[in-house]
Design a protein around this nucleic acid. Structure first.
Lengths: 263, 263
DNA sequence: GGCGTTTGCTAACGGTGTTCACTAAAGCGT
DNA sequence: ACGCTTTAGTGAACACCGTTAGCAAACGCC
């Protein structure tokens, strides 16, 4: 049992022994190369042997760092969720705090922009999970996904607090749906203590629409029939935002929300 | 060059020589086994060697029937689109011709039902296309997909002809969107000669929503947070149909549309 | 019956994930 | 500074995979 957390040579960041630092570094390199192979050759193009080859070592050596190819995929998936979250957060932070509407527009557009410019990554993160054996540890990716989702919960919470839109008639929420929505709200730990199920329904519905367009675009579902999917995304964004009481402005617009133009 | 299309022993279906018949049969068997492996072991579990093993032959022998694993996947994808189309059509045909509303509800629910009970298939059909090399011949699958889509075009066309809903304000259709929508209408060959772009927009929007919910469910996107996705699907279906001027009824309902109950 | 076409096989090449036994080196305590 | 322990990495091996080339047998038509 080694415990070198006090005596160290020079100033090292975050109480890590030299060994731990170089270990961390190679793990980072592994993930970086895996990531590059993912975007260059698709999900099937990520192989331990190819990564090892590129690093100047042999495949079994990688097992000191990763428990297998599946775990590696899970690890980089978690990283990608964090990266997507950071991209959205950066977009959000790039506009003045008080301009809520523009912040929301910018954040949602950042989501799509990241998705279309990181198609392979998006496919792994939001696409089908190929038959995953039950004992696989997907916790890191799920946790990262939860963190990412929280970004949008926060934005939505603000709209809710500002009473931007009227909640739908509760008669439209069947008991079964209410049960699922409550489960949703509880499991993902909404910040608001007692959020009405109608609000969760609105959030779900909006998310379904945006998720739908982006998936259609990234998965190349309409490529035979449509060349550019941005207009359709903008159209969906328009109706979603309008329904949420958020002002819509076309992408290039720099006009602040308070100064109205034509709708 | 053999041309036995006149003289044949007994009554054979559809002018096929014996050789062609047995050939067709083995191809069918190959696809059937591939399909089973797909549902049982996921997309990655489909391998020529395994299929050959199960058929009592060797992998290279399969190359007499299929030009490679990719082509095999494309072939069964085409079959699956036809099968999905047949399932939807069967559901549509199971309700009286004149009850348009119920036919539409039933068809859309059949789509979801098929998707959730054929997750692996759905993932290949509607999920991300992994880096496909340009010279791959995906035409059969695309053609089958087009046939499937036509099913819904027909249903939508009827609603349009019956003027069930008012078209959205054309001011909401940007020129860019209009261009893409026109391309959509032309490429997929709508039956109506000159369909307004606003109608295509409504169709796209509806499809995006339903595609979105079903993808979220089949891709297991919310499984951490929601156990049953049917209520959310029904909720989306409700708002989509209502916006389309189609009466919504909950799944079990056998009441004909003309007799109204509470909304 | 002869003969060309079709079918399927074996062998082989190059690629993959993964396990195991093993060496060499690095780190640490004394 | 030495010795022991922990760790990083290797090589060989196993069991798979897709794909190609060459060859032998079966089939079906004339």
């Amino acid at each position: 049992m080694t415990k070198p957390q006090v005596a160290r040579g020079q100033a090292e960041q975050a109480g890590l022994s030299r060994r731990e630092r170089v270990r961390e570094a190679t793990l980072t390199e592994i993930k970086a190369i895996a990531r590059r192979h993912l975007v260059e050759h698709g999900p099937a193009g990520v192989s331990l042997r190819a990564i090892a080859r590129e690093m100047g070592m042999t495949a079994p050596g990688l097992y000191r760092y990763v428990s297998g190819i599946d775990a590696l995929l899970v690890a980089i998936t978690a990283d990608m969720f964090d990266e997507l979250g950071a991209a959205v957060a950066a977009a959000d932070a790039s506009v003045p705090d008080e301009d809520t509407d523009r912040r929301i527009r910018t954040s949602l557009r950042a989501f799509r922009a990241w998705a279309v410019s990181h198609r392979s990554e998006f496919a792994i993160m939001f696409g089908p999970r190929p038959h995953v054996d039950p004992n696989a540890d997907t916790a890191p990716a799920i946790e990262a996904a939860r963190r990412f989702a929280a970004t949008f919960y926060t934005l939505f919470d603000r709209l809710l607090a500002e009473r931007r839109f009227v909640l739908p008639d509760s008669a439209h929420v069947t008991p079964e749906l209410a049960r699922e929505l409550r489960s949703f709200a509880e499991t993902c730990g909404f910040s608001a203590p007692h959020i009405p199920v109608e609000a969760v329904m609105v959030l779900s519905s909006c998310w379904v629409r945006l998720y739908g367009v982006v998936c259609m675009e990234v998965f190349d579902q309409m490529s035979v029939v449509m060349r550019d999917m941005e207009p359709l995304f903008e159209s969906e964004l328009h109706t979603v935002l309008t329904g949420l009481g958020v002002r819509y402005e076309p992408p290039g617009s720099t006009a602040p929300t308070t100064i109205g133009s034509s709708d």
